[in-house]
Structure formats: C-alpha cells, structure tokens
C-alpha cells in the first residue's frame, strides 16, 4: 500500500514547485538540486523550512535576472514609444519656430511690450526661451531614435545622450520653479484651475522625453 505524504510534506513540495517557477529558465536545473535535498529530509518542519528558503532563493534569482539581463525590445514597441516621447517636444519646437508663439521670430519691442513689462514677465520669457531650446531636442530625439530603430545604431555620442536626457529635465525643473515663483506652492495642487495643462505639459515635454532618451541610451549600452 502506498503511504500518503503528510500535509507538511505536500506543502513543502508545493513550495518547491513555486521556487522552480520563480527561477529563471537558465537556472531551472537548480530546482532539481533543491528537490533532491528535500527528499532526504526526514523531518516535516525541516522540509518546510528548506522549501521556504528555496522560494526565497528563486525570488532572489528572478529579481537578479530582471535587473541583470538585457531585455530586447521589438521595433513595433520602440517606434510608438519613441513617437510618444519625442513628438510632443517636436511640436513645442514647431510651435516656437513656425506656429502660434513664433518665439524665434519675435520682435524685441513686442516682447518687451507683451511679456517683460508684466509682473513675472521676465521669468515667463526665460521659460518660453528654455522651451524653445528644449523643443529643438524633440526632432533630435526623433533622429536619434530612428537610427536605433532603422539601422540598429547607437543614437549618438554619450554627450548627445546626456543632452537628450538632461535638456528636458532641466526644462521641467525650470517650469516647476517658474510656477512656484509666480503662483506659489498652491499651484501644484490638482484643484488648481490649469493643473491638467500644467502637469500634462511636464509629463509630455519633460518626463517622457527624458525617459525615452534614457531608454535609448540603455539600449545602445546593451549592444
């Protein structure tokens, strides 16, 4: 007659199955080694402790694998990601140069009349100029990402990468500082009248381009 394993032993076996599932594919054979030890432990408590430790080992290896392994990204994912990251910044560039605000062509007297003379006008002007400069990084980011997508080449030098990450971040920081200086800390609340416009601007023109550029850099470092 076949002896039924105890509840503790069945639980330990289940835990080892969890540990095996947690281990990365390249480490699965270690689960057999863990299982072999379990089969030699007479005491249920020891077996449970051993199996729990194996789950911890599996989780550690899974986490290590997540941070150590290079994740390949499909071009079908990378293209929309890069468009989302750099097109809004490119629109800012286009807006500054050719469309509504036309900062680049703005006449000095008109600027003085409509912007600088007003309270906090200088700060607003600095922010707009910074936006114009940061906006130029949008097309550059698109060019850099197209090199990665089309030709699988690095987006550019390390300095170019640093500029693509740092530029939008600096612009975001400047925008936050300008808002703090002009409207106070209360303007950061979600109940502020233009909070959606403000935070979506920070997300689209600062955070996403910087993250996209960082991702491009990590992809080129992996090659």
């Amino acid at each position: 007659m076949k002896v039924q394993p105890s509840t503790g032993r069945r639980l330990a076996a289940a835990l080892l199955r969890v540990a095996r599932g947690l281990l990365p594919q390249s480490r699965r054979h270690w689960a057999q080694a863990m299982q072999a030890e379990l089969d030699h432990l007479g005491n249920d408590q020891d077996a449970l402790r051993w199996a729990l430790g194996c789950v911890v080992a599996g989780a550690k290896e899974r986490i290590n694998g997540m941070f150590g392994d290079k994740l390949k990204v499909s071009r079908w994912i990378l293209v929309p990601e890069m468009l989302l990251c750099f097109v809004p910044l490119s629109f800012l560039c286009w807006d500054s140069v050719a469309a509504g605000s036309r900062m680049v062509r703005a006449h000095g007297e008109a600027l003085h009349e409509h912007v600088v003379r007003h309270a906090d006008g200088t700060l607003a002007l600095i922010t707009v100029i910074a936006g114009t400069i940061a906006g130029a990084l949008g097309p550059l980011g698109l060019i850099g990402s197209s090199r990665v997508v089309v030709a699988a080449r690095a987006p550019g030098s390390r300095w170019f990468g640093a500029l693509l990450i740092g530029g939008p971040l600096l612009y975001g920081l400047l925008t936050l500082t300008a808002r703090l200086a002009t409207a106070g800390p209360g303007a950061f609340g979600l109940d502020a009248p233009d909070s959606f416009d403000f935070w979506s601007g920070i997300l689209l023109l600062s955070a996403l381009p910087a993250l996209g550029a960082a991702h491009l850099q990590s992809l080129s470092a992996a090659r």
């Binding site: 480490r27 270690w30 080694a33 863990m34 030890e37 030699h40 432990l41 402790r49 051993w50 729990l52 430790g53 194996c54 789950v55 911890v56 080992a57 550690k60 290896e61 290590n64």
Partner: peptide
Amino acid sequence: GYELSSETGLKSGTLYPILM
C-alpha cells in the same frame, strides 16, 4: 546542500544563490 547549510548556518535561501 543540506550538509553545507547545517555546517555554515546558511538557510537554503542564502546558500543556493551563492552556490549558483
């Protein structure tokens, strides 16, 4: 593994990652 664990006092959750 169990012998090494008993001798060193390392739990299996620590021992196996080091062995790997």
